[in-house]
Amino acid sequence: MKKNILIFIVFLLIAFVLPFVLSVYGIDLVSEIFIMAIFAMSLGLIMGYAGMVSLGHAGFFGIGAYTVALLGPHIPNSYLLLFFSICLSGLLALVTGAIFIRTSKFYFLMITLAFGQLLFALAWQLKQWTGGADGMKVSAPLNLGFGEIVSPIGIYSVMAAAFIIVYLLLRFFVESPVGKIVKGIMENEARMSALGYDVRIYKLLTYTFSGALAGFAGSLYGFYNLFVSPDVSSWMFSGQVMMMVIIGGVGTLIGPAIGAGLFIFLQNFISTYTERWPIIMGALLVILVLVGKGGIIHWFALLKSKIFYKKRKNSDDYAPQHVEKEEVVN
């Protein structure tokens, strides 16, 4: 636990120092990474702690973004807008989750994909409200009560704060009794069920929480770009976030956030240098799988074990634990 606090303080320091070292563009990019990190952590929660792999999570992100864009002209208060985004996406997650969690594994993946596409199609076809494929602008920038926040530093601070709050919330959730039960369900559903826990309720709760956080990330994104288009809820975007989570490391809180940062940075960097970026990006993913040990976050653990525990013979104890069980799809 102490280690966690230490890491957390280091992170705070880095977040504080970054704006002084980075260019304006760098600050913008890191702000965006914070938003994506929140989104990735929300997906990481259900993937890593509840064993639900969703390919429609961008649907909730889209709900958040479109709530800001659509209600913005009628509700001038940013707090209210954020609140509505969270409630709406959480509510939707609750309702759809109640249906979806009956299916398992691969079927869950596909039914969430359908859900994401449904929202995508809605945004695409309700042209009179959403502007359809042309997208729509967000009417007013974020305003938290002390003027409109438009400067890169201002946005950076908000996004960094949001990220930290979400991280703490998730940490709290995961370490709460409820979080422990959820994790127990993932590891052995039959046992937890036999112990008298209502498995579905706990899964649904986690899914709802995750959906609400994804919606929160989406609404921040709406304020960040001041423009939304149906692409925010496309399945390709859901797929990308899933990549972020897996790259970073499933089963940890901060892993997906690191994955998000790495993914966005790499994709941006490579595609600037070559038009052939999909080949390189794809090859990197393949290499990561072949030499990786369950995500970047575990590399740190490995590195640390190599440095601090060198003398120990049995250093495998500190090698990354594989979170995914050798379970099969069906």
Binding site: S23, L29, N225, F227, D231, E275
Partner: peptide, 23 residues
């Protein structure tokens, strides 16, 4: 000259725009 790929996605385009204009 700098060529950037926006993947026909306004969100990506905005990121590329910032890179081109600010960086």
């Amino acid at each position: 000259i700098k060529f950037e790929d926006d993947e026909a996605n306004p969100q990506v385009a905005l990121r590329k725009y910032r890179q081109l204009v600010k960086n």
